[in-house]
């Protein structure tokens, strides 16, 4: 079986998830390279290629001029994988959708607002078909390896559909609500190992909603634990601003 050729591409993002993809032990990296050929990856190699089987795309689509490039990547690749919150769910890039485009242009480039081309921040699957997602801000490196491996084997990518609570309970973490902290864990896709609640924080929602979330109940519970509804909206906004179930009226 010839090794599939894999290329990495980035749009609007910090490129941190690509770095996470490299955050492997030497053995893991060699094992990975025994299974795939990396033909384009600007954070790791100088080579570029117009021929690849799997495209791994990081970042949101925030300029209309990005669309032809993304469409060309899609056309070339057999499989397209979204890497990180920005490409999977837009994440923090969606915050700008709550402001008018002209306002943003004037704020960022007050002397030459027209130089700043921008439009609504969108997820990759709003433009082209996506075969698998590796969510997170940043991604979980081991999940990246697992998804790539499963796809190479022709299997389902197999990322969790259950919420972060499952991972907290398995680790016997004290529920952060008991500490008076509000957490989005009950409605957010697991796979991170509940790292934020475990380390004293709370779930920000970077991995996106579970497939069938009970948002009404989540909001009521957060309110019951003394959080006003406008603050609850802000909590959701940080990573889930592009979610149409939560924010219907945003551009």
């Amino acid at each position: 079986m010839p090794k599939p050729k894999v290329a990495f591409f980035d749009f609007t993002c910090c490129e941190g998830c690509q770095l996470c993809a490299l955050d492997l032990t030497a053995e893991q990296l060699l094992d990975l390279l025994a299974v795939i050929d990396i033909v384009e990856f600007r954070e790791a190699i100088s080579e570029k290629s117009d021929s690849f089987d799997i495209a791994i795309v990081e970042g949101s689509i925030t300029r209309d001029s990005d669309i032809p490039r993304l469409e060309k990547i899609r056309k070339t690749a057999n499989l397209l994988i979204c890497l990180g919150s920005c490409s999977c769910i837009v994440g923090i890039n969606a915050l700008k959708n709550f402001q008018k485009t002209e306002e943003l242009q004037n704020e960022v480039y007050p002397d030459a607002p027209h130089r700043y081309e921008t439009s609504v921040a969108r997820a990759v699957d709003e433009i082209v078909k996506v075969d698998a997602i590796i969510p997170g801000c940043p991604i979980n490196t081991l999940e990246f390896v697992k998804v790539v491996k499963n796809l190479v084997l022709g299997k389902d990518p197999d990322i969790p559909t259950y919420p972060v609570c499952i991972e907290c309970k398995k680790k016997e973490n004290i529920c952060v609500y008991e500490k008076g902290i509000h957490c989005l864990g009950p409605v957010i896709r697991a796979g991170c190992g509940a790292i934020c609640p475990e380390k004293g924080g709370y779930c920000f929602g970077c991995r996106g909603l579970v497939p069938d979330p009970n948002l009404d109940s989540m909001r009521e519970i957060m309110n019951k634990y003394n959080m006003p509804y406008d603050q609850i909206d802000d909590r959701f906004k940080l990573f889930l601003g592009r979610n149409k179930e939560i924010f219907q009226d945003v551009q």
Binding site: V35, D158, Y162, C168, K169, N214, S217, I221
Partner: peptide, 27 residues
């Protein structure tokens, strides 16, 4: 209406014994 379907009740239950079986091929 209230249930979050989070599965916490089952993780902590001393008598729940349902399991999933999966094959994990090494890299």
């Amino acid at each position: 209406k209230r249930c979050l379907s989070c599965g916490s009740c089952i993780m902590v239950c001393p008598t729940c014994y349902c399991f999933d079986v999966a094959d994990e091929l090494a890299l």
